[in-house]
Amino acid sequence: MSAVLEIEGLRKTYKSRRRGTRNALDGFDMRVEAGQVHGFLGPNGSGKTTTLRTLLGLIRPDGGRMAMLGHEVPHALPAVAGQVGAIVESPQFFPQFSARDTLALLAGAGEVPPRRVDEVLELVGLRDRAGERVKTYSLGMKQRLAVASALLKNPKLLILDEPANGLDPGGIREMRTLVRDLAAAEMTVLLSSHILGEIQLICDSVTIISLGRRVAFGPVDQVLAQHSQGAVRVRLEAVTDLPAAAEALIRAGVRVTGHPDHLMLSGVDKPAIVSRLLAEQGLYVSELAPVVVDLESVFLELTATAPVPGQHRQVDQSTKVGEPGQPGATTGGWGA
């Protein structure tokens, strides 16, 4: 499969006399395959928006390589801009213009046929409100307008930064369907979002960034599997047999956590081994279920951003690959 978007070793450093140096992007890598819906995840301040802005030529990188649709950017950005639709961060439009005027002016600047304006307004559900001034729109409606502006070019690569911000539940579902339909029409979608359930539902692959570096990437299933830690829940026909079962499993090298009515096992590659091991001891399993991890728990684990009772996590407190205990440790955040 060919890559529509490639980023290698991207670096962006902000320098401040008062606060020192901050590495917003610290050798970040990403690869998005053609036709995929790719999730781009990271805690606040991890470098997601900086990456997207750099990719779109709004921020000058300090190092690294980027390519979109086979062209090196930012050098070839003018050549590929017509095939890349993007919204970055919160939707921003001139408040006195109507949605139709806003899109018509963008279409004019991008040499897009005017009829496309009505098509995208229909697509995002703004047809009947297109003549109203943007300043009267709710956040969700502005978000729809932003998506419409990104779709105006009928792009090959669509970059959406938090497209579900401010949308009502129906709107989120519509957005999900829209993204799926676009992917089915062979559009590649890069989706940055904090709604991890949505990402898990609609994305084929993900990249997780933390403090400017990639901490995980690949197909969603693969990322989940890599971090499921082989957890299995076991119930027996007789609850009274649980201690004996725990003893047998521990002897076999399995990590066991006891609960009143079941056992939680970890480090189990193949659940069938558990069944066989217990059967050999005359213990019969009534439930043997691999515990499925979700993207949220993987995200929290990888970025070390799970809330801890009694602690107030600060924005730059998250995991960085290469930190103490990991190879190539460096420090991030202001003052680095």
């Binding site: 709004l58 801009a81 970055v88 963008l106």
Partner: peptide, 8 residues
Amino acid sequence: MNLLLWRP
């Protein structure tokens, strides 16, 4: 910013 996304 919007305009620069269209005409970089």
